[in-house]
Simulated assay, not measured.
Amino acid sequence: QAALTQLHGEVLDGIRGGRTLPDILAEASLPAVLREHPTAVVPYLVIRDHFTERLHHQRTGYWQPDLLGLEPATGAEQAAALDLLAAGREEPFAAAAATLIGQGDHALALQIIQPGLLRHPASTTLAGLRRTALYRLMEQYQQFDPFKFLIYAELADAEIGPVE
């Protein structure tokens, strides 16, 4: 409880400071009180990000400090804008995504791949990179975030066998 109370205060301080949700999440708070309760560390880690996201969304409303939500654009509109940067070619999408995957930024790679596939749906390269990013995200979250693990597994059409 003490760890969540501290996290609650840190999130509210971040909101009052005009910080974005990704910036607050990037701090990845791990309160010192958990040193005295090592068995509470894993449960805390499992809920930390979701707790932060929910509190941020409840307290900030529709429009975010980074202007997200102020002028909503469809996925197709965002893909068209990114395709302008890519000069209408799929290769820049693939190169950026491959670099991000290589750096371990799998979620960011997926954010590049998805609009790339909207503009270039026949691209086997982008489809393969999407599959790779999704599997890496599944690996990343399999121990600490069952919700994200299941969502990424579903997006990847991965078959998850029964637990023995």
Rank of each mutant, 00 (worst) to 15 (best):
A76L: 11
Q64H: 14
R119L: 06
T124I: 05
L68E: 09
L118H: 07
H56T: 03
A32V: 15
V42Q: 12
D49Y: 12
L110F: 05
G61Y: 09
R19S: 10
L150H: 09
Q142D: 07
A32L: 14
T125H: 03
F51H: 15
R89Y: 04
Q111D: 10
A109D: 00
E77G: 02
H106M: 02
G104E: 01
F144T: 13
Q78R: 15
E159A: 07
T20R: 09
R48E: 05
Q78P: 04
D157M: 06
H56K: 00
P38Y: 04
L137N: 01
G104N: 01
L34K: 07
L100M: 04
A107D: 12
G69M: 11
G88V: 03
A79G: 01
T39I: 14
I113R: 02
R48L: 10
G9W: 04
R19N: 14
L100S: 01
A32K: 15
A122F: 00
L4G: 07
E90L: 00
P146F: 13
R48K: 08
L21C: 05
G61W: 04
D157K: 11
Q140K: 13
V163W: 11
I151Y: 07
V41R: 03
L126G: 05
R130F: 04
H8I: 01
R131C: 03
H120C: 01
E159K: 14
F144D: 13
A86F: 01
V33G: 09
R131F: 00
L21S: 08
E164A: 08
D105Y: 03
V33H: 06
A153N: 15
R59G: 08
L85W: 14
H120V: 06
I15D: 11
T125M: 02
I101S: 00
Y135G: 00
Y141P: 06
R35G: 05
Q140G: 00
G128Q: 02
G17L: 10
L30P: 00
A158H: 13
K148F: 11
A28D: 08
A32D: 15
H120T: 00
L118Y: 01
L134D: 02
L85T: 07
G18Q: 11
G18S: 07
H57Y: 04
D157E: 13
L126Q: 00
A81S: 13
L34R: 09
P92R: 02
A153M: 14
E36A: 15
I151D: 14
V41H: 09
A73G: 12
G17F: 08
P31G: 13
P38A: 02
L21Y: 08
L25K: 10
A156T: 05
A80W: 00
Y44N: 09
L34N: 12
T52C: 08
S123R: 01
D145E: 12
A109I: 04
R16Q: 09
D157L: 08
E164C: 06
D145C: 12
L150K: 05
L68G: 03
I151W: 12
G104D: 03
D13F: 05
L155D: 15
F93Y: 14
H50G: 14
P146I: 11
Y135A: 06
E139H: 05
P65I: 15
A153Q: 09
P22Y: 08
E53A: 13
L55Q: 11
Q1V: 04
E139N: 03
D49P: 04
L45F: 05
G88F: 01
T132Q: 10
L100E: 01
A122T: 02
H106D: 10
Y62P: 10
